[in-house]
């Protein structure tokens, strides 16, 4: 093994409003840090190559695939994962819209879809259908044919207003 073996850093960041410190390898994937160190298993691994979007989280306001982020690059960031969408035991309008529209079928792409949709609505509270499709194009779903996901995002945009 190289001289990198055993390299560890104390990684500080804020996830879903909570400051955390994790001792980990700087090259560890953010996805593994979230799932294994912080037990935030809502974020899923579908491909490990940034293709399916199941691991998408919002980092400093931007959508990223957590499987492609080395831990060191999450130092000091603000992260939001699917666990951080609902507040005070209440689902966010976006989550409610997914329930209402059957936007989640098997549910494995859902956390990533929600984060992409959440991030979109933060940037563009009233997106066109085309804008929704473009924003979600990096999130693959094999169950729905996307129609009900797109409909759910449109519904959330309509109902949620700024209080996503």
């Amino acid at each position: 093994m190289s001289d990198g073996s055993g390299q560890q850093i104390d990684l500080h960041f804020v996830v879903n409003g909570q400051a955390v410190t994790v001792r980990c390898h700087p090259m560890a994937r953010l996805l593994d840090v979230l799932r294994e160190e912080l037990h935030l298993t809502g974020t899923k691994e579908g491909c490990g190559e940034g293709e399916c979007g199941a691991c998408a989280v919002v980092m400093d306001g931007e959508l990223v695939n957590s499987c492609l982020v080395p831990a060191a690059q999450a130092a000091g960031v603000q992260l939001r994962t699917v666990e951080g969408l609902a507040a005070g035991g209440r689902l966010a309008p976006l989550q409610e819209a997914f329930l209402h529209c059957n936007g989640a079928q098997c549910g494995i792409c859902t956390p990533g879809m929600l984060m992409a949709a959440f991030c979109l609505l933060q940037h563009n509270p009233h997106p066109s259908e085309e804008a929704v499709r473009v924003a979600l194009a990096g999130n693959l779903c094999r169950c729905t044919g996307y129609a009900k996901i797109v409909a759910a995002v449109a519904r959330a945009a309509q109902e949620g207003g700024d209080a996503l």
Binding site: G42, T43, E83, A86, L91, Q95, N102, A104, G107
Partner: peptide, 10 residues
């Protein structure tokens, strides 16, 4: 969908 709340919250 009955199990949807679990699916949308992770």
């Amino acid at each position: 969908r009955l199990e949807a709340p679990d699916k949308v919250t992770g």
